[in-house]
Every structure is written in structure tokens, then in C-alpha cells.
Amino acid sequence: MRRKPRIAVWKFASCDGCQLSLLDLEDHLLEIADAVDIAYFLEASRATKPGPYDISLVEGSITTPHDRRRILQIRRQSRFLVTIGACATAGGIQALRNFRKVQEFVRLVYAHPEYIDTLEHSHPVSDFVPVDFELRGCPVNKYQVLELVSALLAGRRPRVPRYSLCQECKRRGLACVMVTRNEPCLGPIVQAGCGALCPAYHRPCFGCFGPAEGAQVAALAQELRRRGRSGPEVVRLLRTFNAWAPEFREESVRHEGA
């Protein structure tokens, strides 16, 4: 019988929520354990096996020189490297610090700033190593994780859409919260994949899946302004979990002080 593919799950600067989403795949965990060898997953087990690994799932952003060295090592040991979640893919909520000088935060926050060894920015993994696939979200959609693993095992491309959340929202039969409630919904520029979770509860999408392919961020920002949102409000809407995604970052800078 063919050797089971070996999976490793890695953590960098993050809240562990994406790893928990993996563990939350309760109905499928036995099946997953059957299909793959979970070789390294500290959130689940202290027992670890050395690399190389067929699939590495990486959670968290890269924020220290030590982590930068570690991600290079992980890349060298991994056949497929997949980022899971907004932190690993775009720098996460902690990338908010990228808009200010980090040394000033360090001076203000820590009694002994000299012990802090940090990079200037909170980086997406792709700033340092090639990434084979991204799963978006804060946290990831656990069914997308399942789909990813199933696809890699079958040697096919994972079915992970790149289009806007609106399409998922309308397929689900929901009425647009922007049109019916004038909510500042980011759905039109955000990648689908969550199943339109927030609009289903009349909440505007706040963009945890990051920019959709071809996202027209400037056009949406212009519409939000037309609908009465101020510059600072637009900045705040664009600066959450994917603040450092280039499309969101550039547009948010344009509305600063506006």
C-alpha cells in the first residue's frame, strides 16, 4: 500500500483559531486520520515526527527574525505549503501595526524594550517563501480545509472560489444588506468561501476572507462615501483582519485624513 501522505500544521503569530477549526472537523477527524499521517500538529498532540512533510498547513504571520528563519526551514521540508487564515495569508489583525512605527509601540508597551526582537512589519508568509495555496478567513472555513486535503490527496485543484461573496450570498437566496439596510457591506470586494455567514444574520461582511480576485475596492469605497460613511469609517472598514492585503491597504491609505 502507498505510504500515507504526511501532514504538518505550524503556528506563527496567530490566535490558534484556524488550528481549532481543523479540530472542529469532528465528524471527519477519524476519516482524516485514516487518510493522512498527522506528523506534526502541536495543538492536537505532543507526539511529533520529523520531516519532510507532504502538506504543511501554516497558521500565523511572520513577525520576528526567529520566525523568519523557521518558515524558511518549513518550506524546505514541505512539498505543498498552504497558508491557513488571514494572518498567514495577509498578515492578520496584528498587521495594523504596519501602519505605524513598531519601535514606538515597543517603547510604550514594554518595561524592557531591549528584550523585544521584532520585525518592522507583521508579514504574510508569502513575503518570505513561495506559497502553493491559500485558504482565507478569520478563521478558515473548516469545510475548505477538508476540501483542500481531499483535493491534494486526489491530485486535483481545490474548489476554492476567488469570486465575490455576493455570488455566494445570492445563491443562498439572501437579500443584499447594503440595498435593504444601507449596511456598509464589504461583500462585493471580498472573496467568497464562508457561505455568506454574516449577511445571513443581517450583518454586513467585514471582509475576513480578504480581497476577491479583481476586487474593485476603490469603486466600493466611493459608494460607501456616497452612502454617508466618512473617510475614517472607510479606513476602519478596510483595516481589520486583512488590513495589509495590498488591495485593502492601498485604498485605506487613500482615505486616511479624508
Binding site: 465575490s164 455576493c166 479583481g214 474593485q216
Partner: peptide
């Protein structure tokens, strides 16, 4: 904004894609 809402709510738009799963 390229969101595609017009096509989703249009009663005649009929384009589909086909996706395989395993």
C-alpha cells in the same frame, strides 16, 4: 464593483460552471 449581483438576480442569466469534488 464587479460583484455579480446583477447576474445572480437577473431572471434570465443562465451561466453555470461545473465543479468536481472527491
Amino acid at each position: 464593483i464587479g460583484c455579480g449581483n446583477c447576474t445572480m438576480v437577473c431572471p434570465t442569466c443562465f451561466c453555470t460552471t461545473v465543479e468536481d469534488g472527491s
